[in-house]
């Protein structure tokens, strides 16, 4: 691990010398990207691809166009008006296929080894069968992370999402220790920024995590997509329909194939929230791992 990191660091420095712009590193992608906005089409910029090669891309490729008028018309610290986003995860259907993780990594320009979703092997007692439990950020309604943030860098939107402002975060990591679900990850070094080859879709929404060295990030419920009534990438990518996403105000959630009443689903399948007794009021519900669709196999994700 250490060696890998120092390697990527070295190549980072090398690449940084070439691009100049990126070498400003640690100061946020957007500043870099916006510098490139002025460049005409046809100019090329050298960047480091996720597999460690230096690639040349057209500068128009990294022009962060913000096409979505919906995003700019409301305050990003207030969320999408009238919405209360909610997720339901059906543990009976999860077989640790790992697609949610890889889709998440892709959506958020994370290295393959890293994603905001974790698929945890859980076993409630010795005699019970183990099961897989995917954990995104729970976007709690009584969020311990937001409570402790000293600068309001993580905040609760009216649409239920717990957002992060990576330009404000001071990197104290109090939110990480406050979160009982270990949902938060930290940009320990510059590794993650340089994996961004295409900046195009990143940070259309300020609540969207961006990879700024020395700051915290986490699952953001893909607010850019949610605002456009599109399901988050993990929901769409899951081959087994484990994830349901929707709007609590509408009382409807969908996993892409099937659209159901939220209240009915939770009633019929005894939906629950993880560690309910902590009182954090998560916006992510679980359906218990009963009547499993797959036998439990302890395998690496992606091999099934």
């Amino acid at each position: 691990m250490d060696e890998e990191q120092s390697n990527s660091r070295r190549s980072f420095i090398k690449t940084g010398l070439i691009t100049g712009a990126i070498a400003a590193g640690g100061l946020g992608i957007m500043e870099v990207a916006s510098q490139d906005t002025s460049k005409k089409k046809g100019d090329t910029v050298k960047l480091l691809s996720p597999d460690g090669k230096i690639v040349e891309v057209d500068s128009s490729e990294i022009n962060p166009q913000i096409p979505d008028s919906l995003i700019s018309t409301h305050n990003v610290r207030e969320g999408v008006p009238g919405k209360k986003f909610v997720m339901v995860i059906d543990l009976a259907k999860c077989k640790n296929a790992g697609r949610c993780k890889s889709a998440c990594s892709k959506m958020h320009y994370l290295p393959e080894t890293r994603s905001y979703i974790k698929i945890n092997k859980m076993q409630d007692s010795d005699k019970a069968s183990p099961y897989w439990m995917p954990t995104p950020c729970f976007h709690c309604d009584n969020p311990p992370c937001v409570k402790v943030c000293p600068v309001g860098a993580t905040f609760k939107l009216t649409d239920g999402i717990v957002g992060i402002d990576n330009d404000r975060c001071i990197g104290c990591r109090f939110c990480m220790v406050a979160c009982p679900y270990s949902a938060r990850v930290f940009n320990w070094d510059t590794e993650y920024q340089i994996n961004v080859v295409r900046f195009k879709e990143i940070k259309e929404h300020a609540a969207c995590s961006t990879h700024v060295t020395g700051t915290v990030e986490k699952c953001d419920f893909c607010p850019t997509k949610a605002a456009k009534n599109e399901l988050p990438d993990c929901v769409q990518a899951c081959p087994n329909g484990v994830f349901y996403f929707g709007d609590e105000n509408e009382d409807v959630v969908s996993n892409g194939d099937e659209t159901v009443r939220l209240s009915q689903l939770l009633k019929d399948k005894s939906g629950y929230r993880f560690l309910e007794d902590l009182g954090t009021k998560p916006r992510v519900y679980y359906l218990p791992p009963v009547d499993r669709q797959f036998p439990f196999k302890d395998v690496e994700p992606g091999t099934t």
Binding site: K147, R168, G171, T215, V216
Partner: peptide, 17 residues
């Protein structure tokens, strides 16, 4: 993680923290 933003504590300080 970001000592350069220490001043955020005074500008954006949340008394709840």
């Amino acid at each position: 993680g970001r000592p350069d933003r220490f001043w955020h504590l005074f500008v954006y300080g949340r008394i709840q923290s």
